[in-house]
Simulated scan of single mutants.
Amino acid sequence: MTSARDLLSALALELGFEVTGWTDAAPRTGEVDAYRAWLDGGRHGSLEYLPRQLPRRADLSSSLEGAGSVLVLGVSHAFAPQEVPPGGVRLGRVARYAWTPDYHAQLEPLLDVLRAEALTLGVRARGYVDHGPVLERALAGRAFPGWQGRSGMLLSTSLGAFTTLAVLLTDLSAPPPAPAHPDRCGRCTRCVTACPTDAIGPDRLVDARVCLSALTIEQRGPVPWALRPRLGEWLFGCDVCSEVCPWTVRAGPLAQLFVPDAELAHPDLTRFFGVSEREFQRQYGHTAFSRPRRKGMARNAAYVAGNHPDLTGRAVMDLAAQDPAWEVREAAAWAYGRHGLISGLEHLRHDPHEDVARAAVRALEEHG
């Protein structure tokens, strides 16, 4: 007789998940301790909600009473490169997971189907797509062939590092323990040495205070001045540690469920200016760009223009200098300074917001 676990796994694969696996819901002391140490060290940065969620992450029964077994699900976002659409100012790079409409909206309906099927089998269930208090990477490392790489990412010899995770908590009894997948990083440190801000620690945990993904997506207000040059071309997120991983290179493009959109992979930066937050959400509310909101994307666009080797992004800097959000005008002052555009800096040093004026003065002083 086919078990409920087998039926749910088979359905998940039919729905488009590319890898599935089961593990028990009991916390592992080492996993929780490592996560607590990461929080205690302040490496969660501005993600202030994470410490509050620690008790729930350590006890999955707080999310589903009687949780005993977890179905962990993986979907590849390893897309092939996308051609740059014509027109606009299309500078900067976007993390691959954001090349497709918001993965939460795409995966949550599939989890609803799995939950409904579980109920028909007499199983209570609850699904999460990385927005719930769950240590998904730790669970995935136990549930299916994979391991936590030096980058802190879940790695797989078949999928590489570009894997989006989801979980289905159930009240099924714990499955038999499976042997841990061997660590295949070996002596490789490509992700560590390639990280633009040295954010990857020796304990395979990432410092969100300097990680480009956190800075471009979660950071509210200006990015620290000294880190802005290290943003380089990154407009949204960062894929460097995953891109350089030999297992990712070997796996190649794999995505099947998610479909990339070239307009998200290479957005026109000028579209982040001259619109209200409501209009921005109308255009991008179905995408990951909604997380930093309009002024966050406009701020990032100004940084990208400032880091560009020539004045291709001058139009973006000029739009940023006139933006209603002071954080964006402050970014414009830094960008003008990077290119020695004195007239723009002279204008912004008289800005009514003291942080903008201060940034313009600082840029003028740094560039004589």
Rank of each mutant, 00 (worst) to 15 (best):
V167P: 00
T29N: 11
E117C: 09
A214Q: 07
A161S: 15
R184F: 14
L257E: 04
R142F: 02
R209V: 08
D323N: 09
L107C: 05
A315V: 15
L264A: 03
G337P: 00
H131A: 15
A208I: 08
A331W: 11
D239Q: 03
D171P: 13
D318K: 13
S242I: 09
M1R: 14
S276P: 09
A26V: 11
T29D: 14
R43V: 03
A357G: 08
Q53H: 11
L345H: 01
L135A: 07
A363P: 02
V328F: 07
L235G: 01
W326E: 11
D323G: 10
W225L: 14
A359N: 07
V75F: 00
T100F: 00
V32Q: 06
A95Y: 03
L257Q: 09
L135F: 08
R362D: 10
G132E: 03
R56N: 08
G66K: 06
T157W: 03
Y336R: 02
D33Y: 09
V316G: 06
L73Y: 00
L364K: 11
V210D: 03
L135G: 04
A331F: 06
G313H: 05
L15K: 06
L212P: 11
P85N: 10
A26Q: 13
S151A: 11
G344T: 06
R36V: 13
G146Y: 02
Y49I: 12
A360L: 11
D40C: 07
T170F: 04
L345E: 06
T312Y: 02
H350L: 15
G232F: 03
R52C: 02
V328H: 01
V113L: 12
G88A: 09
A251C: 01
Y103D: 08
C191L: 08
V240S: 00
D33K: 14
D355M: 13
R36Y: 02
T20E: 13
P292V: 12
T120C: 10
A251E: 00
W234Q: 00
E233H: 06
E366H: 15
L231I: 14
G340D: 10
L235M: 05
V206R: 04
